[in-house]
Design a protein around this nucleic acid. Structure first.
Lengths: 181, 181
DNA sequence: GCCTCCATGTAATTGGTTACATGATTCT
DNA sequence: AGAATCATGTAACCAATTACATGGAGGC
């Protein structure tokens, strides 16, 4: 059975604690949203597949027809195996960065304005991340610690991009036509 | 007519100079590969759609049945419009970063090893980017300059992630159990 | 009674990758 | 003659988003 990235993410979450599809959807909307996203319409069918593969099992049936799942031993083993296998190349796919390749089509002042607006957006994201970080004071589960570490990656990434955007804007607007060599 | 991101990328490339589908495929394999990727199987149908929408036109028929396209005035206008519209949120979707959330399932030493290996991979990518940068000495088209600027973003990004990964590894291995507060 | 949140599912469509398929030109 | 490269296309499949659809439980 081949398990998708979404499948591995669900298995990882369900290895920390049993959850319903609804809870999992919320997890993807909150902490996980910044590295991987998924809608409930993708999650529910994936849960059914994982049950079929014996990687998770339903542990409880609650009110409103809710179903709580937990990872089986096989499921946890699958996550560990995934974590130790080769990670993909993961070339970043960014429409925002793609646009940069075509900024020569705008007047330099407009291109610089675009970049400065980008810097602002990246800084705003830093602020959002930092407020997320402040709202999780206590660590209940070891997983929380890793959430913080991933958050730090996000903060550093956004700060780097903000700095880059300002540098690029100056490069274009201030720097004169073309500094060959 | 709604134009996809791929469509805009093709329009942008064809605004710089007329090219064949083969040439465009090569462009996506080289410089553009780091921000957006596309295979020929996606490019050829998209070109047909853009012709249908009047955004590009075939300017020349070469040997081996090759077809050269250029952006029309409407096509160039569409790119400029796209560049000035709102860029999407573009939350980074990274399987490599997703894994970090589940590293609590490994022994700390294994988790740290994973992160140090990540740092190495990011540094390797920096080296690759830098050699790409050295291989484009002269700027023929204004677009080349923007390619360099985008490349700089890639270099800064990879360096940031390498530093973060080393920091995280130390945090886990050296830092003791849990630094609450 | 009404609104909000909890809770689960399916269908349609788009975007993207992998695989299948073919053939012409150029270089050695 | 054979290999590499140029060149274009289609089909099948997978991943992901948006829209459709339904209903129960709890709070006001």
């Amino acid at each position: 059975m081949k398990v998708s990235t979404l499948g591995h993410a669900l298995l990882g979450l369900l290895s920390a604690q049993p959850m319903t599809g609804y809870d999992l959807t919320a997890a993807f909307d909150q902490s996980l949203a910044n590295v991987w996203s998924a809608r409930h319409s993708q999650i529910y069918p994936e849960l059914a597949k994982l049950v079929g593969a014996g990687l998770i099992e339903q542990t409880e049936a609650g009110p409103r027809g809710s179903k709580r799942y937990a990872a089986t031993a096989a499921g946890e083993a699958e996550v560990r195996h995934w974590l130790q296998g080769r990670a993909p190349g993961d070339a970043l796919r960014s429409e925002r960065l793609l646009r940069v390749f075509f900024l020569w089509m705008l007047r330099p002042a407009d291109a610089a304005a675009y970049l400065r607006a980008e810097a602002v957006r990246h800084r705003e994201q830093v602020a959002r991340y930092e407020s997320v970080g402040n709202e999780i004071p206590v660590e209940r589960h070891p997983a929380d610690r890793w959430g913080r570490i991933a958050l730090e990656a996000g903060i550093r990434y956004e700060n780097t991009m903000a700095e880059w955007a300002l540098w690029a804007a100056d490069e274009i607007e201030g720097g004169g036509p073309v500094p060959v060599t």
